[in-house]
Every structure is written in structure tokens, then in C-alpha cells.
């Protein structure tokens, strides 16, 4: 039985009605590899990771990325990186950084001397 559609373009394809559970149409990697996309909105701003595209090469990935991540707003530049080439840290290793926010000696807010100055100004030592 052929598909009858309201859309003449579909009817012209003379598609068969697919019976129960046919074989898989796609095989592993029929949709290629993935590439991470980095998008820069304006000159001077940084490139940010916005997602991935499936593509057969970096050049094609860039073509797809322009469609997928450049359809709205401003874009001045994009980078493409093969997902395979990204070395990512494990989330479980975050404890390496757990005490970083406590290291106030690395932070301007870790240095408060106004009390000292006020005390000094009140003292006899201040001429």
C-alpha cells in the first residue's frame, strides 16, 4: 500500500506503508563523529562552548555549526574541535579545587588594613 498524503510532494514519492518493525536503517557512525562548537559573539569577547554537531570532517562541522549555532543574534567567529581531542577532567576530581575558594591570601578581599590605619591615626604614634 502506498502513502496517500494531503501533501502532493509526499504522494509523489510513492512511499510504502512500513509494516511492523523493519530492520535498522542506520548503522553505527552513519551520522559520523561529533565536534564541539565554540562561538564568539563579538570581537573582544571570548569563545564559548555552545554544543556539538555531527559531521564527517572539521570543515563540514564548521558549515553545520554556522547553521546550527549562528541562526540568531550576533556571531563573528567560531571554532571547531573534534570531541575526541578534548581531554576532560573527571567530575569526581573536583575536590582538588574544594579549598580554593578558602584561599583568601590569593584574593584582594583577603587584605583588610583599614582597622589598623584607623587605630594608628588615633594613637600617639601618629603625628
Amino acid at each position: 500500500m502506498k502513502i496517500k498524503s494531503l501533501d502532493p510532494r509526499v504522494s509523489r514519492l510513492e512511499l510504502d506503508v512500513v509494516d511492523k518493525q523493519p530492520d535498522a536503517v542506520l548503522h553505527v557512525q552513519d551520522h559520523w563523529e561529533t565536534y564541539q562548537v565554540f562561538h564568539q559573539r563579538k570581537r573582544g569577547e571570548k569563545h564559548s562552548s555552545v554544543g556539538i554537531v555531527h559531521a564527517p570532517s572539521a570543515e563540514m562541522a564548521l558549515v553545520f555549526a554556522k547553521e546550527q549555532y549562528g541562526r540568531r543574534g550576533e556571531t563573528v567567529n567560531m571554532w571547531i574541535v573534534n570531541t575526541r581531542d578534548v581531554l576532560a577532567m573527571d567530575y569526581d576530581d573536583y575536590d582538588v579545587f574544594a579549598t580554593t575558594p578558602d584561599k583568601m591570601y590569593r584574593d584582594p578581599a583577603g587584605y583588610k588594613v583599614n582597622d589598623k590605619i584607623a587605630e594608628f591615626k588615633k594613637s600617639n604614634l601618629h603625628v
Partner: peptide
């Protein structure tokens, strides 16, 4: 049927673009 035809009809294009050394990696 339309979705299936789209995948079927695109197969030769995807095939032509595929490279031998491709290797799938789950996105990050």
C-alpha cells in the same frame, strides 16, 4: 514513512562524506 525515506535517500551522501579513520566519542 517520510522520515524513513529521508534517512534512506540521504544515505549515499553521508556515505560519500565518511572517512575511514572516524571514531565515535560520546559528547562531553
Amino acid at each position: 514513512a517520510v522520515r524513513r525515506a529521508a534517512e534512506d535517500n540521504g544515505a549515499w551522501v553521508r556515505d560519500a562524506l565518511r572517512k575511514a579513520d572516524q571514531q565515535y566519542v560520546t559528547p562531553l
